[in-house]
């Protein structure tokens, strides 16, 4: 098993309350993703055993959503919203700025495997645009100064 005992326990707890087993798919995927940073075929199998739902149903659901990539990414996943409200306030230039700063293109991961940069659809921070999400945290009202500071902090924490 790649899923840890804690994850399995958490999945069991999270899914227990639902009237039907199949409802456990999203909670289970979420727990698995949090542990691993990816969810692939092997994990679908493990989840399938834990929540007793056919394997293919897990694969079908997982690939429908954007939050369960099959391959793990950098330690910090930077997701920049490129939708309209953010774009009006310079999201595209924010992406270019990050590309320059990190020395990678959108969609890529830095050589030290620290940062992955992707652009995503609206994250519900439209009034605090432009914004980016790094792992689970939102960073809003971004300026060049703020971005520099954030990246520096993350680098030093890593």
């Amino acid at each position: 098993m790649i899923l840890t005992q804690e994850s399995i326990q958490e999945i069991k707890e999270k899914t227990a309350k639902y009237p039907r087993k199949k409802s456990g798919i999203l909670p289970a995927l979420t727990v698995a993703y949090r542990q691993l940073g990816y969810v692939d075929d092997e994990i679908y199998h493990e989840i399938s055993k834990v929540i007793k739902v056919p394997y293919v149903e897990i694969a079908e659901a997982a690939t429908f959503y954007t939050m369960f990539p099959k391959k793990s990414r950098g330690k910090y996943l930077i997701q920049v919203c490129h939708n309209i409200s953010c774009a009006l306030l310079g999201a595209d230039s924010l992406i270019s700025y990050l590309e320059d700063k990190l020395g990678i293109k959108k969609g890529e991961t830095t050589a030290d495997n620290l940062f992955t940069l992707i652009s995503v659809e609206c994250l519900g921070s439209c009034s605090t645009a432009p914004m980016m999400q790094i792992n689970h945290d939102f960073h809003e009202n971004l300026t060049r100064e703020k971005v520099d500071g954030i990246l520096e902090t993350l680098r030093s924490e890593a």
């Binding site: 075929d41 679908y44 056919p54 394997y55 293919v56 149903e57 694969a59 079908e60 690939t63 429908f64």
Partner: peptide, 21 residues
């Protein structure tokens, strides 16, 4: 039977066997 599924979404959604099966 659960050996066939549909994966991904939108215009790139695809039908396929259950992964590895």
């Amino acid at each position: 039977e659960y050996d066939l599924g549909v994966y991904e979404r939108g215009s790139i959604a695809e039908i396929n066997a259950a992964p590895g099966e």
